[in-house]
C-alpha cells in the first residue's frame, strides 16, 4: 500500500513537473518543472528495478543537463526575463497535436496485446555488474559509438558556439 502511494507520488511528480515545464511562461519555472519531472521519472526507474539508471538519470539529467539549460537561460537573458505575449493560436495548435497524439497512442496501448513475462528476471541480471559486463561485451559497439558521439558533440558544440575569429585586415 505504501509502495503504491510512493509510486503514485512519483507519477504525480512526473506529470505535475511536466505540466509546469509545458505551460509555464517563465523559463526558470519551466526548468524547475523539468527537474521535478525528471526526479519523478528517476523514482519510477527505481521502482522498475533499475537503481543504476535512476542514479544516472539524477546525475546526468538533473545534475548536468538541467544545469546546462539554466546556463543557456542566463546567457540569453533577454527573452527569459520578459516572456513574449502568449499566443493562443499556437497554444491551441500545440494542445490539439498533443491531444491527437495522446488519443492515438492511448488507443493503441489499450488495444495492444503484450506478451508479458510472468515475473521480473533475477535480481542479479539487473545489477550494475551485469550492465557493465553487457556494455563491454555484447554492446561494446554501441558503447564505443556513444562515446564517439559524445566526443563529436563536444567538438561540434565548441565549433558552433565559439566567437567568429576576427577577420584579417586586408
Amino acid at each position: 500500500m505504501l509502495e503504491q502511494a510512493v509510486i503514485y507520488t512519483f507519477v504525480a511528480f512526473v506529470l505535475i513537473g511536466g505540466g509546469l515545464a509545458a505551460f509555464s511562461r517563465q523559463i526558470l519555472y519551466a526548468i524547475i518543472g523539468l527537474g521535478i519531472s525528471l526526479l519523478g521519472l528517476a523514482g519510477l526507474f527505481l521502482n522498475l528495478g533499475s537503481p543504476f539508471v535512476a542514479a544516472m538519470q539524477v546525475l546526468i539529467y538533473i545534475g548536468g543537463i538541467t544545469v546546462a539549460i539554466v546556463f543557456a537561460m542566463m546567457l540569453s537573458i533577454a527573452m527569459s526575463i520578459r516572456p513574449p505575449d502568449p499566443d493562443a493560436r499556437k497554444l491551441g495548435f500545440a494542445i490539439a497535436c498533443a491531444v491527437i497524439f495522446f488519443g492515438a497512442v492511448a488507443h493503441l496501448i489499450r488495444g495492444a496485446q503484450f506478451q508479458q513475462i510472468a515475473s521480473p528476471a533475477s535480481e542479479k541480471a539487473w545489477s550494475v555488474g551485469a550492465l557493465g559486463h553487457a556494455l563491454l561485451t555484447h554492446y561494446n559497439v554501441v558503447f564505443e559509438t556513444l562515446s564517439l558521439v559524445l566526443l563529436l558533440a563536444i567538438i561540434g558544440a565548441i565549433l558552433i558556439a565559439r566567437k567568429a575569429l576576427p577577420k584579417e585586415n586586408s
Partner: peptide, 15 residues
C-alpha cells in the same frame, strides 16, 4: 504517453 504529450505542448507552444 502523457509525458510525451506534455513535452509536445511545451515544444510546440513556446517561442
Amino acid at each position: 504517453a502523457a509525458l510525451f504529450s506534455l513535452g509536445l505542448i511545451g515544444a510546440l507552444s513556446h517561442r
